[in-house]
Protein backbone atom coordinates (compact mmCIF):
# COMPACT_ATOMS: atom_id res chain seq x y z
CA UNK A 1 0.00 0.00 0.00
CA UNK A 2 2.00 2.93 -1.22
CA UNK A 3 1.33 6.31 0.33
CA UNK A 4 0.93 9.08 -2.20
CA UNK A 5 1.41 12.70 -1.35
CA UNK A 6 -1.42 15.19 -1.36
CA UNK A 7 0.12 16.73 -4.44
CA UNK A 8 -0.20 13.56 -6.45
CA UNK A 9 -3.67 13.06 -5.05
CA UNK A 10 -4.70 16.48 -6.31
CA UNK A 11 -3.24 15.66 -9.71
CA UNK A 12 -5.33 12.50 -9.88
CA UNK A 13 -7.90 13.51 -12.50
CA UNK A 14 -9.90 10.28 -12.49
CA UNK A 15 -12.78 11.78 -10.55
CA UNK A 16 -15.93 12.75 -12.48
CA UNK A 17 -16.50 16.28 -13.70
CA UNK A 18 -19.59 18.37 -13.05
CA UNK A 19 -21.62 20.06 -15.77
CA UNK A 20 -23.04 23.53 -15.26
CA UNK A 21 -26.33 23.05 -17.05
CA UNK A 22 -28.97 24.99 -15.12
CA UNK A 23 -31.75 23.14 -13.33
CA UNK A 24 -34.64 22.57 -15.75
CA UNK A 25 -37.38 25.16 -15.64
CA UNK A 26 -40.11 22.51 -15.56
CA UNK A 27 -38.84 21.25 -12.22
CA UNK A 28 -38.81 24.69 -10.63
CA UNK A 29 -42.25 25.49 -12.01
CA UNK A 30 -43.70 22.14 -10.99
CA UNK A 31 -42.29 22.44 -7.50
CA UNK A 32 -43.75 25.94 -7.15
CA UNK A 33 -47.18 24.75 -8.30
CA UNK A 34 -47.15 21.73 -5.98
CA UNK A 35 -46.02 23.75 -2.95
CA UNK A 36 -48.80 26.25 -3.68
CA UNK A 37 -51.27 23.36 -3.99
CA UNK A 38 -49.98 21.97 -0.67
CA UNK A 39 -50.65 25.27 1.07
CA UNK A 40 -54.13 25.63 -0.44
CA UNK A 41 -55.00 22.01 0.36
CA UNK A 42 -53.73 22.33 3.93
CA UNK A 43 -55.87 25.41 4.44
CA UNK A 44 -58.97 23.89 2.85
CA UNK A 45 -58.91 20.38 4.25
CA UNK A 46 -56.27 20.46 6.96
CA UNK A 47 -58.83 20.67 9.73
CA UNK A 48 -57.93 24.34 10.36
CA UNK A 49 -54.75 22.95 11.97
CA UNK A 50 -56.92 22.06 14.95
CA UNK A 51 -55.39 19.22 17.02
CA UNK A 52 -58.89 17.87 17.74
CA UNK A 53 -59.79 17.28 14.08
CA UNK A 54 -58.96 13.66 13.29
CA UNK A 55 -59.60 11.16 10.51
CA UNK A 56 -62.59 11.65 8.26
CA UNK A 57 -63.47 15.08 9.61
CA UNK A 58 -62.25 18.11 7.70
CA UNK A 59 -63.18 21.07 9.92
CA UNK A 60 -63.65 21.70 13.64
CA UNK A 61 -67.34 22.36 12.91
CA UNK A 62 -67.75 18.88 11.43
CA UNK A 63 -66.21 17.41 14.58
CA UNK A 64 -68.50 19.50 16.75
CA UNK A 65 -71.59 18.48 14.78
CA UNK A 66 -70.53 14.85 14.89
CA UNK A 67 -69.95 14.95 18.63
CA UNK A 68 -72.65 17.12 20.27
CA UNK A 69 -71.41 18.38 23.60
CA UNK A 70 -73.12 17.15 26.77
CA UNK A 71 -74.80 20.19 28.36
CA UNK A 72 -74.83 19.80 32.12
CA UNK A 73 -77.59 21.47 34.12
CA UNK A 74 -76.50 24.37 36.31
CA UNK A 75 -76.95 22.38 39.53
CA UNK A 76 -74.83 19.39 38.46
CA UNK A 77 -71.30 20.54 39.24
CA UNK A 78 -72.11 22.51 42.47
CA UNK A 79 -74.46 19.72 43.59
CA UNK A 80 -71.71 17.10 43.07
CA UNK A 81 -69.36 19.34 45.05
CA UNK A 82 -71.76 19.60 48.03
CA UNK A 83 -72.36 15.84 47.91
CA UNK A 84 -68.61 15.19 47.86
CA UNK A 85 -68.15 17.46 50.89
CA UNK A 86 -71.05 16.56 53.20
CA UNK A 87 -72.75 13.35 52.04
CA UNK A 88 -70.13 11.06 50.55
CA UNK A 89 -68.78 9.92 53.92
CA UNK A 90 -71.99 7.98 54.72
CA UNK A 91 -73.70 7.45 51.36
CA UNK A 92 -70.46 6.71 49.42
CA UNK A 93 -69.30 8.02 46.08
CA UNK A 94 -71.52 5.62 44.18
CA UNK A 95 -74.58 6.41 46.31
CA UNK A 96 -74.79 2.81 47.51
CA UNK A 97 -74.58 3.69 51.24
CA UNK A 98 -73.25 1.14 53.70
CA UNK A 99 -75.22 -2.10 54.26
CA UNK A 100 -76.92 -2.14 57.64
CA UNK A 101 -75.70 1.39 58.53
CA UNK A 102 -76.50 4.03 55.93
CA UNK A 103 -79.25 3.61 53.35
CA UNK A 104 -78.51 3.90 49.63
CA UNK A 105 -79.44 6.90 47.52
CA UNK A 106 -78.85 5.15 44.21
CA UNK A 107 -82.18 3.76 42.94
CA UNK A 108 -83.70 4.46 46.35
CA UNK A 109 -87.48 4.45 46.71
CA UNK A 110 -87.15 7.62 48.83
CA UNK A 111 -85.26 9.46 46.08
CA UNK A 112 -87.08 8.28 42.95
CA UNK A 113 -90.39 9.88 43.82
CA UNK A 114 -92.33 12.59 42.08
CA UNK A 115 -91.10 15.56 44.12
CA UNK A 116 -88.27 16.48 46.52
CA UNK A 117 -90.51 17.54 49.42
CA UNK A 118 -89.38 14.88 51.87
CA UNK A 119 -85.71 14.98 50.81
CA UNK A 120 -85.50 18.73 51.46
CA UNK A 121 -86.86 18.20 54.95
CA UNK A 122 -84.41 15.38 55.68
CA UNK A 123 -81.45 17.53 54.62
CA UNK A 124 -82.67 20.54 56.63
CA UNK A 125 -83.45 18.75 59.87
CA UNK A 126 -81.91 15.29 59.60
CA UNK A 127 -83.51 11.92 60.31
CA UNK A 128 -83.42 9.38 63.10
CA UNK A 129 -84.82 6.01 64.09
CA UNK A 130 -86.06 3.07 62.07
CA UNK A 131 -86.25 3.54 58.33
CA UNK A 132 -87.16 1.19 55.50
CA UNK A 133 -85.42 1.83 52.18
CA UNK A 134 -85.95 -0.51 49.24
CA UNK A 135 -87.52 -3.00 51.70
CA UNK A 136 -84.41 -3.05 53.88
CA UNK A 137 -84.52 -1.85 57.48
CA UNK A 138 -82.06 0.69 58.88
CA UNK A 139 -81.84 2.30 62.29
CA UNK A 140 -79.42 5.18 62.49
CA UNK A 141 -79.31 8.98 62.60
CA UNK A 142 -78.58 11.65 60.01
CA UNK A 143 -77.40 15.14 60.98
CA UNK A 144 -79.32 18.33 60.21
CA UNK A 145 -77.64 20.61 57.66
CA UNK A 146 -79.97 23.61 58.08
CA UNK A 147 -77.27 25.89 59.44
CA UNK A 148 -74.41 24.68 57.23
CA UNK A 149 -75.96 24.73 53.78
CA UNK A 150 -77.72 27.54 51.92
CA UNK A 151 -81.01 27.10 50.09
CA UNK A 152 -79.12 26.96 46.82
CA UNK A 153 -76.66 24.34 48.16
CA UNK A 154 -79.53 22.10 49.28
CA UNK A 155 -81.40 22.54 46.01
CA UNK A 156 -78.24 21.66 44.06
CA UNK A 157 -77.32 18.57 46.05
CA UNK A 158 -80.86 17.19 46.03
CA UNK A 159 -81.13 17.78 42.27
CA UNK A 160 -77.79 16.03 41.83
CA UNK A 161 -78.77 13.01 43.94
CA UNK A 162 -82.13 12.71 42.15
CA UNK A 163 -80.38 12.48 38.77
CA UNK A 164 -77.20 10.51 39.44
CA UNK A 165 -76.47 6.73 39.56
CA UNK A 166 -79.48 5.91 37.47
CA UNK A 167 -81.90 8.00 39.51
CA UNK A 168 -84.52 9.93 37.67
CA UNK A 169 -86.31 12.85 39.30
CA UNK A 170 -87.18 16.50 39.00
CA UNK A 171 -84.72 19.10 40.18
CA UNK A 172 -85.26 21.10 43.36
CA UNK A 173 -85.18 24.89 43.36
CA UNK A 174 -83.81 27.28 45.94
CA UNK A 175 -87.29 28.80 46.26
CA UNK A 176 -88.78 25.44 47.21
CA UNK A 177 -86.06 24.91 49.80
CA UNK A 178 -86.60 28.39 51.23
CA UNK A 179 -90.32 27.80 51.54
CA UNK A 180 -89.79 24.53 53.43
CA UNK A 181 -87.01 26.06 55.52
CA UNK A 182 -89.39 28.85 56.58
CA UNK A 183 -92.26 26.44 57.19
CA UNK A 184 -90.16 24.16 59.39
CA UNK A 185 -88.07 26.80 61.16
CA UNK A 186 -89.54 25.87 64.53
CA UNK A 187 -88.90 22.13 64.24
CA UNK A 188 -86.08 21.59 66.64
CA UNK A 189 -85.57 17.87 66.20
CA UNK A 190 -84.78 15.32 63.48
CA UNK A 191 -87.51 13.78 61.40
CA UNK A 192 -88.74 10.24 61.85
CA UNK A 193 -89.94 7.90 59.15
CA UNK A 194 -93.52 8.12 60.38
CA UNK A 195 -93.54 11.95 60.27
CA UNK A 196 -92.07 12.06 56.82
CA UNK A 197 -94.53 9.59 55.39
CA UNK A 198 -97.31 12.00 56.40
CA UNK A 199 -95.85 14.65 54.08
CA UNK A 200 -96.75 14.50 50.41
CA UNK A 201 -93.82 13.76 48.12
CA UNK A 202 -94.60 16.72 45.92
Amino acid sequence: MSELSNKSAVENDSEPKVGLTPAPLWAVTLLGILVYALIVRSINSGGDFDPNVYGRFETPKEVQDGHPAVVLPDWFVPGRKVYGTYCVGCHQGNGAGAPGQFPPLAKSDWVNVEGPNRMVRIVLNGLQGPLKVNAVDYNNAMLAWRDQLTDQDIANVISYVRNEWGNKGSAATAAEVKAIRDATKDKGEQWTEGQLLQIPVK
Partner: peptide, 9 residues
Amino acid sequence: PLPRWIITI
Protein backbone atom coordinates in the same frame (compact mmCIF):
# COMPACT_ATOMS: atom_id res chain seq x y z
CA PRO B 1 -54.92 8.22 14.35
CA LEU B 2 -53.35 11.65 14.01
CA PRO B 3 -54.75 15.16 13.51
CA ARG B 4 -56.01 15.82 10.02
CA TRP B 5 -53.49 18.52 9.20
CA ILE B 6 -50.54 16.17 9.73
CA ILE B 7 -52.05 13.63 7.34
CA THR B 8 -52.96 16.30 4.77
CA ILE B 9 -49.46 17.75 4.70
